[in-house]
Simulated assay, not measured.
Amino acid sequence: MEWNDESEQKKLCPEDAMRMLKSEGIDLDIEQAAEVLFLLRKIANIAVSKYLER
């Protein structure tokens, strides 16, 4: 995954997530990787919302 510009952000795609997890010994198909990313984004959004409510 490459960054073109410091201010530009790129979402992690399921293919990249699959490669990252495979390098750690976790084998998932593309649909499972997409579900993992969805869950992680949801958890991150909840955590940020809770933090900002303080």
Results as ranks from 00 to 15, higher is better:
40 L>W: 13
14 P>N: 11
25 G>K: 05
40 L>G: 03
17 A>R: 01
26 I>C: 12
30 I>M: 13
31 E>R: 11
39 L>D: 13
52 L>F: 04
49 S>V: 02
15 E>Q: 13
17 A>E: 03
48 V>F: 05
10 K>V: 09
5 D>M: 07
30 I>Y: 07
17 A>V: 03
25 G>T: 02
22 K>D: 10
42 K>S: 06
54 R>W: 11
28 L>V: 09
2 E>K: 08
25 G>P: 01
29 D>W: 10
35 E>V: 13
51 Y>P: 00
9 Q>D: 12
46 I>K: 11
24 E>N: 06
2 E>S: 13
34 A>P: 00
33 A>E: 03
22 K>F: 08
46 I>W: 04
36 V>M: 07
42 K>A: 10
20 M>Y: 12
47 A>K: 05
17 A>Y: 01
37 L>C: 04
42 K>W: 15
54 R>P: 01
40 L>P: 02
45 N>G: 11
27 D>N: 15
27 D>K: 07
10 K>Y: 03
16 D>F: 06
24 E>H: 11
3 W>E: 10
30 I>Q: 15
15 E>L: 08
43 I>K: 12
8 E>A: 09
7 S>C: 02
41 R>S: 10
2 E>H: 06
31 E>W: 14
22 K>V: 07
4 N>M: 12
20 M>V: 06
29 D>M: 05
23 S>W: 04
52 L>R: 08
4 N>D: 14
49 S>E: 15
35 E>R: 10
10 K>F: 05
43 I>M: 14
19 R>D: 12
5 D>A: 09
19 R>P: 00
28 L>I: 06
52 L>K: 12
23 S>H: 06
13 C>R: 14
34 A>H: 08
17 A>Q: 01
53 E>S: 12
11 K>E: 09
27 D>T: 06
15 E>T: 13
44 A>E: 09
41 R>I: 00
19 R>E: 13
28 L>W: 00
38 F>W: 09
32 Q>D: 06
6 E>D: 10
32 Q>N: 05
21 L>A: 04
5 D>E: 15
48 V>W: 01
19 R>S: 08
3 W>M: 08
25 G>F: 03
15 E>P: 01
52 L>S: 07
13 C>L: 09
15 E>G: 15
25 G>M: 04
12 L>P: 01
20 M>R: 05
7 S>I: 11
1 M>K: 04
50 K>F: 04
2 E>M: 09
27 D>Y: 06
6 E>H: 05
49 S>N: 07
34 A>T: 10
5 D>V: 02
26 I>L: 10
2 E>G: 06
28 L>H: 02
49 S>I: 01
35 E>S: 08
26 I>G: 01
40 L>I: 07
23 S>E: 15
28 L>E: 02
6 E>V: 04
54 R>V: 14
20 M>Q: 09
38 F>H: 14
21 L>S: 02
32 Q>V: 05
10 K>A: 02
32 Q>A: 10
6 E>M: 03
